[in-house]
Amino acid sequence: MAAEAPHAPPGVQRRRSSQHTRMWGYLLALPTVWMVTFFISSMVIVVLLSFGTTTRDGFPVFGTNSGNFSALWDEVYLRLFVRSLLYALATVALSVLIAYPVAYAIALHGGRYKNALIAAIVVPFFASYLIRMYAWKALLSDDGLLNSGLRKAGLGDGISFLNTPWAVIGGLVYGFVVFMILPVYASLERMDTSLIEAGNDLYHSPLRTFFTVTLPATRAGLYGGMLLVFLPALGDFVSAQLLGGSSTFMIGNLIQQQFVEGQNWPLGSAMTVAMMAALTVLMVVYLRATSTKAREL
């Protein structure tokens, strides 16, 4: 037994399972410190600064007044809040209308091209959001491809597609619809397709089958997708900036202005806090409602 491992003197090592757990604990420590430093604390600072003021030179200072929040209770801001909410909801609704047929067609009739088709949707969505928004701007602009095509066909002269609510909402859908397609697709994939056959036999109407069988069975994917589309759509400012104008601005544009152009950071922080508060309330209500629905199934 020449190749035997040397034996350490017994009793010097600690019990290794505790040593092992400690090793994993160390691994957790650094990322935890990182997230607390750069994420949690940053959120705290936003909340703190929302009660602050700016000096005469425009420098933000911490404080304890709620002036920023009462300033938000203003018709201009409120209208903008409501508009953002409506745009985001419209985005969710359109995304649902697009996602179901697309996910359905791919999941149940995609055959061996399923994965390729899903990849064809996913790849552009994860590649530059900004460039895709720009692509729409180029297409819809007054001297863009669409207008010149219409002109050539004699169908009109210089329609303004940009600066309309529909351009902005279209941009949001274009930006985020993938977050609806993927979960709906995943739950359709998991679904037992014999249910759809049974439904077709029973109801003789694809539409009735869809509402009585397919929709309830994919509820989880639908609810998840709605949330995943709503959250980024509500906070977006790029679509409104590039495809819209001041009449279509959303909360995101307002916040962006306070931080980049207006340089009123405390007011911008208050807007951010207000948006997050609204989102949190909506989310809690939404999760409550959907989880009871899910339980009824």
Partner: peptide, 9 residues
């Protein structure tokens, strides 16, 4: 978290 919030923070 909406990205604008993360960015601002």
């Amino acid at each position: 978290t909406p990205e604008i919030v993360t960015g601002v923070a």
